[in-house]
Computed example of a mutant assay.
Amino acid sequence: MTPAVQRGPDHLTLALPKGRILEEAVSLLSRAGLPLSLPERSRALRHEFPGVTVLELRNQDVPVYVDLGVADAGIVGKDVLVESGRAIYEPVDLRFAGCRLSLIREVGATGLIARVATKYPRSARAYLTSRGISAEVVRLSGNIELAALTGLADAVVDLVQTGSTLRANNLEEVEVLFHSSARLVVNRAALKLRRERLRPLIGRLRELTAVGVEDLQNP
């Protein structure tokens, strides 16, 4: 068990998502000056470090913990943040875990879209409304592409990274709703109460991500 530390007014609680974002998030935050080093194969959900507590959460729960003030800040994908509907301060695009949320159909499909399947109903409805499409939105949990292949839906809205799964299943992107990447999110009250910790962290992350962009542009 990780020993608890005494939490002062400058102590930060961070909400980080399990899965593909976690390792890169911890690495970036460490480079930004936070003393983080998560143990491998640990089943712990909360980790204590000097001045910092890390909560490991499901991706979809990060905006909730930050918005309600249980966590002072967190890292989450833009797709999850948009879908959550939470009005959270989003000061830094961390520029990793890039993907896009797209409308997907079978190659060559031309009929009207009457039903759309997705893990992202809020985003899908907003898109359909903006296009004047009055389609039914069906929420599914996994294998979204299968809904288009079996006729369950006329189209699906899902994340795309490389597009290899689409090509393997005779599917294509019809339109990109928006591009997504990992974002730093901050509780608005914490930004005032813990400004001496959060402001430098935000500044350092902006520097690190800006350097990353320059390195990509000038290899």
Score class of each variant (00 low, 15 high):
Met1Ser: 15
Thr2Asp: 15
Pro3Ala: 12
Ala4Arg: 15
Gln6Tyr: 03
Gln6Ala: 14
Gly8Phe: 01
His11Gly: 01
Leu14Cys: 08
Ala15His: 00
Leu16Glu: 04
Pro17Leu: 04
Lys18Ala: 14
Lys18Asn: 12
Lys18Phe: 02
Gly19Phe: 03
Glu23Lys: 15
Glu23Ser: 14
Glu24Leu: 10
Leu28Trp: 04
Ser30Met: 04
Arg31Met: 09
Arg31Leu: 02
Ala32Gly: 11
Ala32Met: 00
Leu36Arg: 05
Glu40Leu: 13
Arg41Pro: 02
Arg41Asp: 14
Ser42Cys: 06
Arg43Ala: 13
Arg43Gly: 09
Arg46Leu: 12
His47Ser: 11
Glu48Phe: 10
Phe49Lys: 03
Pro50Leu: 02
Gly51Arg: 00
Gly51Met: 03
Thr53Glu: 13
Thr53Tyr: 12
Thr53Asp: 14
Leu57Ala: 04
Arg58Gln: 14
Val62Ala: 08
Pro63Thr: 08
Pro63Gly: 12
Val66Gln: 02
Leu68Gln: 12
Gly69Asp: 10
Asp72Ser: 00
Ala73Phe: 03
Gly74Thr: 08
Ile75Tyr: 00
Val76Phe: 05
Val80His: 10
Glu83Gly: 09
Ser84Lys: 14
Ser84Ile: 13
Ile88Ala: 05
Ile88Arg: 01
Glu90His: 01
Glu90Gln: 12
Glu90Lys: 12
Val92Ser: 04
Leu94Ala: 06
Leu94Pro: 00
Leu94Ser: 06
Leu94Phe: 11
Phe96Thr: 03
Phe96Asn: 10
Phe96Ile: 03
Arg100Asn: 05
Arg100Met: 11
Leu101Met: 11
Ser102Asp: 05
Leu103Gly: 08
Leu103Pro: 10
Leu103Val: 15
Ile104Leu: 05
Arg105Trp: 07
Arg105Thr: 15
Glu106Ser: 06
Glu106Pro: 09
Glu106Gln: 15
Thr110Gln: 14
Ala117Glu: 09
Thr118Ile: 07
Thr118Leu: 06
Thr118Lys: 05
Tyr120Leu: 14
Tyr120Ala: 15
Pro121Val: 07
Arg122Ser: 11
Ser123Cys: 07
Ala124Gly: 09
Ala124Arg: 10
Arg125Glu: 14
Tyr127Glu: 06
Tyr127His: 14
Arg131Leu: 10
Ser134Phe: 03
Ala135Pro: 08
Val138Leu: 15
Gly142Lys: 12
Asn143Tyr: 10
Ile144Arg: 02
Ala148Pro: 01
Leu149Asp: 00
Leu149Ser: 03
Ala153Thr: 11
Asp154Trp: 01
Asp154Cys: 06
Ala155Gln: 07
Val157Glu: 08
Asp158Gln: 14
Leu159Gln: 12
Ser164Met: 13
Ser164Tyr: 11
Leu166Lys: 01
Arg167Pro: 03
Arg167Tyr: 08
Arg167Cys: 04
Ala168Tyr: 04
Glu172Ala: 11
Phe178Tyr: 15
His179Val: 15
Ser181Lys: 10
Leu191Ile: 11
Leu193Tyr: 07
Leu193His: 08
Arg194Gln: 13
Arg195Pro: 01
Arg199Asn: 10
Gly203Thr: 04
Leu205Thr: 07
Leu208Gln: 09
Val213Trp: 07
Glu214Phe: 05
Asp215Met: 14
Leu216Ile: 06
Leu216Asn: 07
Leu216Val: 04
Asn218Pro: 00
